[in-house]
Design a binder for these strands. Structure first.
Ligand SMILES: [Mn+2]
Ligand SMILES: [Mn+2]
Ligand SMILES: [Mn+2]
Ligand SMILES: [Mn+2]
Lengths: 138, 138
DNA sequence: ACCGAAGTGTAGCCGATGCTACAATTTTAA
DNA sequence: TTAAAATTGTAGCATCGGCTACACTTCGGT
C-alpha cells in the first residue's frame, strides 16, 4: 500500500471522472443510433434515467468539446472524434464485462459493475484481463 | 451486454460517486492518524493534492454527515461511524489492490487503478476476487 | 387542416468539488 | 518575548451534473 505520494494517483482519478460521463454518452449515442437509425435526446434521457434537461446540458458539453453535433429539435450525431471515443469505450467496456463473467460473477453483476469499473482501468490492467481470459479457455 | 433497462445501473453508479469522496477521506484520515498520531487538514491537502479550502469544505460535509468531528484550528477525528466506514473501505481497497497484483499488474498500476476501482466493486465481485486469490496460491 | 401528444429549449434553482485571495490563528524559532 | 512561518478560516468565484416549471416546436391521428 505505502501511500507515499498519493496525490498523483488521486489527480488521475479526478481526471477519469471528468471524462467518464462523456464516454458513457458517446457509447450510448453510438449504440442507440446503430439499433434504431438515429439518437434523440429522449432516448438518452430514458437510457440514463435522468431528465431531458440534464441530457440537453450534457449534449451541450459534448458539442462544445467536439464529440457531437446537433441542430435545434434535431437528432444527435457523433463527430469522427466522438465515434472514435465511442468505439474505444465500447471495446474497453466489453473486455471488462467479459472479464467479470470469466471471474465467475453473474451477468447482472457483471453488467452493473463493469459500467462503473470501465472508466478506471488502465491499459496495463486491461491487458492483464485479456491475458487472463485467453489462459482461461486458450 | 444487452443494454435494456440500463437506467438502474447508471443510478447505482451515480450513488457510488456520491459516497466515493467520503470513503477516500475517512480512509485517509484513519491512515494518517494511525501513522502520525493525529490528522490535520494540511495532511489531507497534501495527500489528495488539493487546496486546503477544498479539504475544509469536504471535512464540513463529513461532519454534517456524522463521519467526523473537529474544533476550530484543531485536528480531525473520526466518529465511530467514520471509523467503521474507514475500516470497511480499507479492507475492500486492499482486496482490490492484492487482486490486481495477483492478476499480474505492476505495483504502481495496482495502486493507481485500485484507488478508482474500489468504489465500484459489488460484494459479489469482491467475493469472486477473493476466491481467485485463494485458488492462486491456496 | 387541426389539435393533442411528444419532444425540445430556456430560465432558474441546488449541491458537490474545485480554485484564488485575503484574514485570522497557532506554532516555531530567534 | 516577539516576529516569521505554518495552518486554518472565510469570501467569492467557476464548472459539472442534477432538478422543476414553463414555453416552444414537431409529429401523429382524426
Ligand atoms: Mn460504458
Ligand atoms: Mn460507464
Ligand atoms: Mn481507498
Ligand atoms: Mn479511492
Amino acid at each position: 500500500m505505502s501511500s507515499s505520494g498519493a496525490s498523483g494517483t488521486h489527480s488521475r482519478i479526478r481526471s477519469d471522472h471528468a471524462t467518464e460521463l462523456a464516454e458513457d454518452y458517446v457509447e450510448a449515442i453510438a449504440e442507440i443510433a446503430e439499433s434504431s437509425g438515429l439518437c434523440r435526446a429522449v432516448d438518452l434521457s430514458r437510457h440514463f434515467g435522468v431528465s431531458h434537461v440534464t441530457v440537453s446540458k450534457a449534449i451541450g458539453r459534448l458539442v462544445r468539446d467536439g464529440y457531437a453535433t446537433t441542430e435545434p429539435y434535431g437528432p444527435i450525431a457523433l463527430t469522427s472524434k466522438g465515434q472514435r471515443v465511442a468505439k474505444a469505450a465500447k471495446a474497453r467496456h466489453e473486455i471488462v464485462y467479459q472479464f467479470l463473467l470469466a471471474l465467475g460473477v453473474s451477468e447482472k453483476t457483471a453488467q452493473t459493475d463493469s459500467e462503473g469499473l470501465e472508466h478506471h482501468v488502465s491499459q496495463e490492467t486491461l491487458k492483464a484481463m485479456q491475458d487472463f481470459m485467453e489462459k482461461e479457455e486458450g
